[in-house]
Simulated assay, not measured.
Amino acid sequence: MDATRSDPVFLAEMVHATIEAGATTVNIPDTVGYAIPSDFHRLIRYLFEHVPSINRAVISVHCHNDLGLAVANSIAAIEAGARQVECTVNGIGERAGNTAMEEVVMAVKTRGDLFNVRTGVNTKQIMQTSRLLTNITGVSVQPNKAIVGGNAFAHESGIHQDGLLKHAMTYEIMKPEDVGISKSTLVLGKHSGRHAVLDRLTSLGFQLGQDELDRFFRLFKALADSKKEVFDEDLMVLVGESIFREEKQRRYKVENVQISTGMFSPPMALVTIKDHERGNSEMFEVAHGNGGVDAGVTAVKRITGSAARIESFNLVAITGGSDAVAEVHVTVVEEYEGREIKAFGSAANIDVSIAGIHSFVDGLNKLEYMKIAGQHRQGLLNGMGNGKV
């Protein structure tokens, strides 16, 4: 039961007697996780050298992870001649757990030049099996867990990302596809270089001109300095911020806003919009809503036919007093070609409702140019700035 703390001579006698009695598999357990790799290797070799009948049975090992050495001890036992490893998916088990199946399997597969053995495990099912177990048990895998952790194939360092894009094996000893992961993850952050960011933009379907890229990277670095990881949604917003045009070239321009509201009457807004792509024709719409901003946004959506929505709405009073200038910042979201795109919109006005409506239109304009970039159109025009009233 606790072979690693047993007398080796006595243990060899017990293994021999067990095999003589007909056993075809004999397990050598490190039940309390006491062994270290050199000790365990020496013990297994001792058995092979002192048990006359040992070649008539498969020597198995069962290691616990109390010292964090379960996998290392199992690998050492394989080197010494063991041909069965008792292990568990994700290394789950009593106390600190057991030998992690996925780690042993991939160690044997990756370093086949040393072991000259194989497992017969379909490694492409490893990640799916790991996630299945997580769903069943409710026990999450730590992000930095080898093979199946969320960061196992994630790279943030700019040098690493650049090398990985040029030749994956530069910084990866295993293919993520071999364990059932579609591809490596380039974690974008303050250490990321232009190569990795450009690759992610391309994968998201964006192609920016040089001026737009320069503005994009300035915004990206500023954002990356303030948060640990930059996600795809963040990149989409930055694209909208970096592709800006002159006021006269923006697709939508708010010509007029009239709002009527009261304690006992539903808020109503009349909005007039000029559409640059429709020959600067003016269109107006009247709509009700839960407040002036909601009514105005509803009117704008009817005019433009947009299905965009405001995901977040932030209000800042720039000056003091009841006549303070209000600055509104919104995040506008829209479904486009099967994916969700986002853009920031901003505007300032003494009237909060008017500022909110202008900020929404500012976000719509940025979404329009994100769509242009996403379609890889050539000759992107320069400039689209923050909303101004």
Rank of each mutant, 00 (worst) to 15 (best):
S6Q: 12
M14V: 14
H16F: 13
G22E: 03
V26K: 02
V26A: 04
I28C: 14
I28L: 15
V32W: 09
E49K: 01
V51Q: 04
I59Q: 04
A70E: 09
N73M: 08
I78W: 09
G81M: 05
V85I: 15
N90F: 11
G91T: 05
E103S: 03
M106F: 09
K109C: 10
G112I: 02
D113T: 01
L114G: 00
T123H: 02
I126Q: 01
T129K: 02
R131I: 11
R131A: 00
G150T: 09
A154W: 06
G158L: 10
I159W: 05
H160R: 06
G163V: 00
L164E: 06
L165A: 04
M169Q: 10
T170G: 01
K183G: 08
S192T: 08
V197A: 06
L208M: 01
D211F: 11
F216D: 03
A222S: 15
K248T: 06
F264Q: 10
M268E: 15
R278H: 13
R278V: 13
E282M: 10
M283I: 12
A287Y: 08
H288D: 09
N290T: 10
G291S: 09
A295Q: 06
K301H: 08
I303D: 03
E311S: 05
I318Y: 00
A326F: 00
E334S: 06
G338F: 15
G338Y: 12
S346I: 06
S353A: 14
A355Q: 05
F360S: 01
L367N: 05
E368W: 00
G374Y: 13
G379N: 13
G379I: 07
K388M: 15
